[in-house]
């Protein structure tokens, strides 16, 4: 349970994250109930950034577990320090320790390497635990995660059960590349994160790039909003918008109508596949720029 104040939305905006009402409420509820929050949405809508911002406003540590195919317990939970163990065994050759004592020694806390999940439950102050792209992990790992998320304890055969000293604020993100199990979904609060609307996107650009001119920022936001409606393989996210805005500033472009050639070349910041670059031809760019200006 946390002491977070109800104005989480304004606190998030103070650290540069502009959440809508639904997302802010879901976050607040997750903090109040001590339940994990599952965030789904397209890549690039700012799911990972929420965890960073939350850690920032709660003034606590962010512990991140990046999921991938084949993620196993030794990368996610804990691992023994084998090099140290081997050295210790060698060093004990001339000591009086018997085999049982030696075994107990090398499988003690001092030889344990904490990985993100174990690290997260052993903090003095509740950290934010970000389990990123859970859909990339295997189903077996997802099943294991269920136990940790409901009991907040981890069993190490050699040491016994380690209970959480503090309950972390857990944020899970998924890009929807595979269906998550109902059991995992039921343990979490849920929020679907969409691309920001025009106003929010403009706020983000102005907050992240304080030196940008308001007119250009408005044009960029409108251009990107219109671009997302085109048929694209990879729709540009907010990170791409910020990259593009920064690129335009560095190219000294003051209006999207000014320099069509430079504008077209700068689209590599927004469009990340060959077919997308091909489909947004100069004519399309100038039409979108004209509408945005």
């Amino acid at each position: 349970m946390t002491n977070a104040t109800p104005d989480i939305k304004s606190r998030l905006s103070d650290v540069g994250y502009f959440a809508n009402d639904g997302l802010a409420t879901a976050l607040q509820l997750a903090l109040n109930l001590g339940r994990p929050l599952l965030l789904e949405g397209e890549a690039g809508v700012g799911k990972t950034e929420i965890a960073k911002s939350l850690a920032s406003i709660l003034d606590t540590k962010l512990i991140r577990l990046q999921c991938y195919e084949g993620l196993d317990a030794s990368s996610a939970i804990y691992e023994w320090n084998y090099q140290r163990q081997l050295l210790s065994i060698k060093a004990s050759e001339f000591s009086d320790r018997d085999a049982t004592e030696l075994e107990e020694h090398i499988f003690s806390e001092s030889f344990l390497l904490e990985r993100p999940l174990l690290q997260a439950i052993r903090q003095d102050k509740s950290p934010v635990l970000l389990i990123d792209e859970i859909d990339r992990a295997d189903m077996e790992f997802e099943a294991y995660l269920l136990e940790i998320l409901s009991e907040f304890q981890i069993t190490v055969p050699e040491l016994g059960t380690i209970k959480a000293t503090t309950i972390p604020h857990v944020i899970l993100t998924s890009n929807g590349t595979r269906e998550l199990s109902d059991a995992l979904r039921r343990r979490c609060l849920y929020s679907y994160v969409s691309f920001p609307d025009l106003e929010r996107e403009l706020e983000i650009i102005l907050a992240r790039l304080p030196n940008i001119e308001a007119t250009l920022a408005g044009q960029i936001a409108r251009f990107v909003q219109a671009l997302r409606k085109e048929e694209l393989e990879k729709v540009p996210g907010i990170a791409e918008t910020l990259d593009w805005a920064a690129a335009l500033c560095s190219l000294n472009i003051r209006s999207l109508r000014d320099e069509p050639v430079k504008l077209q070349s700068s689209l590599i910041c927004l469009l990340k596949t060959e077919s997308d670059l091909h489909s947004i031809a100069a004519e399309v760019t100038s039409r979108l720029a004209g509408e945005a200006a």
């Binding site: 009402d21 409420t25 509820l29 998550l180 609060l189 849920y190 929020s191 679907y192």
Partner: peptide, 20 residues
């Protein structure tokens, strides 16, 4: 109503279809 709606939505939905 808006706040209660948002709270219930976060608590009672579990996937995009339910969210929508």
């Amino acid at each position: 109503r808006g706040l209660d709606h948002d709270r219930m939505k976060a608590l009672l939905t579990g996937c995009k279809e339910e969210w929508d």
